[in-house]
């Protein structure tokens, strides 16, 4: 049998503990939490039909989630989680609405969101909205860059080629026959500047390489073959002596030496045998 004094102590303790566990609206408790931290309201009974959290908006000051809603007579008993994003006093009812869409007419559920910053904290300036509709405008920049790249690519693909074609049409390359004829005429008229002798010698080498079918041969090997050729050899050797040997007979008339080449038709000079 329990002693009466002990029984009294137990009853007082039970009474005290049930008083602490009373719901908020009954106790009038003010829920508080610091900015960004999750706060919980448990066992709160709110009248009327079931409540749900309002859809989250871009600049919402509070994020609310209904964890549990249990029917409680003609009311509901809720477990609610909230994250306050702005310090100050708020009414949680502002972020709740009826599931069936009827008017909310809820009692005030006061919440205090505490700032951890000391008073007088300097706030950073608000970001200015740029000319792009969204901060950074990354997607727009990406689209713009893609379009630009596409345009440049198309220009490179077609614009450059057209230019080349035009250039090719307007400035046809001089053929070897033309080049050689110009130099031979200059020799004939004794108008060849000394600087062009090297060019003439190279052109004659190219001419004989084509004529004798030595285009794919090694240049030194081709030159040796040309020197051994009965038609080209004497002419090229004499020319070489005249140009490079300081002791050669400088009275040789170059125009006479090159005269046989002047009589070769242009198309023959271009022909690869």
């Amino acid at each position: 049998m329990m002693k009466p004094r002990l029984t009294m102590v137990i009853l007082v303790a039970v009474a005290l503990s049930s008083a602490i566990a009373l719901p908020a609206q009954e106790s009038g408790e003010l829920y508080s939490q610091s900015v960004g931290k999750a706060g919980y309201i448990k066992e709160i009974i709110l009248p009327g039909s079931e409540l749900i959290a309002k859809p989250l908006e871009q600049e919402s000051e509070m994020v609310v989630r209904i964890i549990q809603a249990i029917p409680h007579g003609d009311s509901f008993r809720y477990e609610i989680q909230f994250h306050g994003l702005e310090p100050g006093s708020h009414d949680l009812g502002d972020w709740l609405e009826r599931k069936d869409g009827s008017g909310s007419n809820l009692p005030e559920i006061p919440i205090e969101i505490l700032s951890l910053l000391p008073p007088g904290q300097v706030e950073p300036n608000a970001l200015e909205t740029g000319w792009l509709p969204r901060l950074g405008g990354y997607r727009n920049v990406l689209i713009g860059a893609s379009v630009l790249w596409g345009l440049v690519f198309l220009f490179l693909l077609f614009g450059g080629r057209k230019k080349d074609e035009i250039a090719e049409e307007t400035e046809p390359q001089e053929s070897l026959a033309d080049l050689l004829k110009t130099r031979l005429d200059a020799v004939q008229n004794d108008e060849m500047p000394k600087e062009q002798y090297a060019e003439l010698e190279r052109m004659l080498l190219a001419f004989w390489r084509r004529r004798l079918g030595l285009e794919s041969a090694d240049t030194a090997e081709a030159l040796r073959t040309i020197h051994e050729n009965p038609e080209a050899g004497p002419l090229m050797k004499q020319l070489e002596q005249w140009i490079h040997n300081p002791e050669s007979d400088k009275h040789i008339n170059l125009s006479v030496l090159l005269e046989p080449l002047r009589s070769i038709p242009a198309n023959e000079a271009e022909t690869v045998s």
Binding site: Q173, L176, E199, M203, L204, D218
Partner: peptide, 13 residues
């Protein structure tokens, strides 16, 4: 190098 030496006489300096 072969192409360079072959082209030497086909174009102007």
């Amino acid at each position: 190098l072969h192409s360079i030496m072959s082209e030497m006489g086909l174009t102007t300096s």
